[in-house]
Design a protein around this nucleic acid. Sequence first.
DNA 1: CAAATCAAGTTGTAGGATGATATGTATAAC
DNA 2: GTTATACATATCATCCTACAACTTGATTTG
Lengths: 246, 246
Amino acid sequence: MKQRLAAIGTVEALPHRVAAFLSREIESGDLNPGTLLPTEQQLSEKFGVSRNVVREAIAQLRADGMVEARQGIGSFVLAPEQRASIRIDRETLKEGQNMERLFELRCILEAESAALAAERRDQEHLDAIKAALDRMSGEERWEDGSIDADLLFHREIARATGNSYIHTFISFVCEQIRRSIYYARQTNPLHDLVEVNVGEHVRIYEALVAGDPAAAEAAMRAHIIGAADRVGVKLPLRTQRTEEGK
Amino acid sequence: MKQRLAAIGTVEALPHRVAAFLSREIESGDLNPGTLLPTEQQLSEKFGVSRNVVREAIAQLRADGMVEARQGIGSFVLAPEQRASIRIDRETLKEGQNMERLFELRCILEAESAALAAERRDQEHLDAIKAALDRMSGEERWEDGSIDADLLFHREIARATGNSYIHTFISFVCEQIRRSIYYARQTNPLHDLVEVNVGEHVRIYEALVAGDPAAAEAAMRAHIIGAADRVGVKLPLRTQRTEEGK
DNA sequence: CAAATCAAGTTGTAGGATGATATGTATAAC
DNA sequence: GTTATACATATCATCCTACAACTTGATTTG
């Protein structure tokens, strides 16, 4: 009774697919903490892969602190309290549609971040944001320095919210996106370098200076959508956005 | 020319010892970024272990984002900037933070999550959410089973967005809040147990069934604000929310 | 000279064999 | 009857060989 692993278009390593499957089962609660995973033999037969593949998958789960293997017994599912971290690894990032999802998450976080920053920013924050903006304007093309300045711009806005959780999460998401862009450029050097749209950033900055949360949110949302578009990602938009909060 | 791995008193798994050795070589700069690791065959001979052990060790390094393996070539050492696997560990998030900021982030993520879920959910998602809701209704007080059901309810909604990043982030934030509540109850057992407001959850569920993103978002926002209030956290609200998107 | 082909090297996967470790069971001793 | 030992079983840990898939560079061929 073999079970087909989701066969996405992208070529993906088998161990990662198995690990992702088990990981989802644990996350969704199908495998409660404390329970024993099926034996390597059973998993091997269930997924139709060799035990080596299963072992590598379990090793990955163990590295993430999701299970604990004990010789002669099996692998136990650990409670979420023991989970060490959030991790988005390179393989996951390469999966199709993941860029789209990442941008979607970024849009949610940054739009709200911009609105909060517009309400809570002080002069020191504005100065830091302006400095990043100036650094960005120095470069026309999407080069390393420009990318860093762009990243800094967004992080400074997140910092201006006064909520370090938001700052941490946005930094993380931005890093993921930046690295995937690096990677895409590395594997396909002919790919056109994406230009940084300075104008979009200026509009965000102006809204922050004006202390207008709605304008800041709208400008940021437009910017993220534009940025996604420039790397070939069409962001699925919510159909009823304008009606919210009525 | 075999090389002895450090034989510590503790019995440690072979792959972990190999990974630790290579990891130290990379960290110390003996293996510069961009260079190719020795082949699995060579490492196998060097350490006197099987190729499987070497493979598991490299898989661990890859999971940590230190190397990238490419079939037919070898494993490249990555620069720290290129490392695609980032951990947001609890220590980082715990530094001088408070519940207020955590709830603020949760509100941002979950409100949008509910709206997206209302647009994208299918019957399987609704069934899973309903199941969590039923489990929750069984308990009147904020007890362990009820907390788990509550958590599951929110995670299932996040899953219904189809965006695994949102799911991951929300799970993480919920887990943080749950642990804080556990801790508060442990240190102060006299503290009144907070009741789960089933009604708020029902309203969210109904909006999801109706496929109404705006209603789902509003219900979720009200719920998070209410939940924060019940644990003594006053959520700072944005002043201009209703005007957004004009 | 250019393009197609081939050969060698490397990682990825398959599948079995053996050792190490934990658990349950049956037998023997008291 | 109870306890203790030995054995059988199940499982992970490691090792081994073989083949498939992929990359690179040399060779051959037109």
